[in-house]
Design a protein around this nucleic acid. Structure first.
Length: 208
DNA sequence: ACACTGATTAACT
DNA sequence: GTTAATCAGTGTG
């Protein structure tokens, strides 16, 4: 455990153009503390959602009770419940007033793997956090954490990765019907914990 | 390997 | 009343 592994990303990291932050978030570590146990992993897949010009964003169409945190200060958790079944974790971005968030889509498990297995009720390493709904279940993240300040929180935060090199690829976002003109899904090329290796439709995957 | 579907609820029209 | 930034199980080839 060296110092670099424990260094948190500062708020200024998130106060920027969302797709850029999303791409740079890859390779950093998502950390969840649960009663003394530390569950963590490497962020390997994300998607950017940004304000008014993005028709796929929850913030498209203005503020509501649900999306309010997307308009607030960068570096907070935006957690929503969807399909009546799953929670999804985002981290807010941009200057206050400009809506933006990054959906964490997949994480490669590093520490606390037994805890993740308990939370998921599954054994396979590849099945623990290789999807946005899976990782919130593995890390026990629900709407009680909506609005959590991930820059100062002791329960949920991001630390700097080890700086290993990798290729970032970009594609259209998954599971949306609008906004296909944006290639705002970013993932680590070749990483086996990415949620979908194969494109669903003739989707062009490019090097970012 | 791939397609299809039920689950189950909150937000919004 | 409809839809949704999903997942797991089932069925078919």
């Amino acid at each position: 455990m060296n110092k670099a592994m424990k260094q948190r990303l500062p708020r200024s990291f998130f106060e920027d153009y969302t797709p850029r932050v999303a791409e740079r978030l890859l390779g950093n570590l998502l950390v969840r503390r649960l009663s003394g146990e530390i569950l963590s992993g490497k962020i390997v897949e994300v998607e950017a959602y940004r304000g008014e010009e993005d028709p796929a964003s929850h913030a498209h169409g203005g503020k509501t009770a649900r999306n309010l945190v997307m308009f607030g200060e960068a570096g907070h958790a935006y957690v929503y419940f969807t399909y009546g079944v799953h929670h999804c974790l985002n981290i807010t971005t941009e200057k206050k007033g400009q809506a933006g968030a990054i959906l964490i889509r997949a994480v490669q498990p590093l520490t606390g793997i037994e805890g993740m297995r308990r939370n998921r009720g599954r054994e396979e390493l590849h099945d623990l956090m290789s999807g946005p709904g899976k990782l919130t279940q593995a890390l026990r993240i629900d709407r009680k954490l909506n609005g959590e300040d991930m820059i100062t929180s002791q329960r949920l935060y991001v630390t700097r990765g080890t700086g290993d090199r990798f290729t970032v690829k970009a594609s259209i976002r998954i599971g949306i019907t609008l906004g296909h003109s944006f290639r705002w899904r970013f993932f680590i090329d070749g990483n086996p914990f990415v949620s979908r290796t194969k494109p669903r439709s003739p989707e062009s995957i490019t090097t970012a």
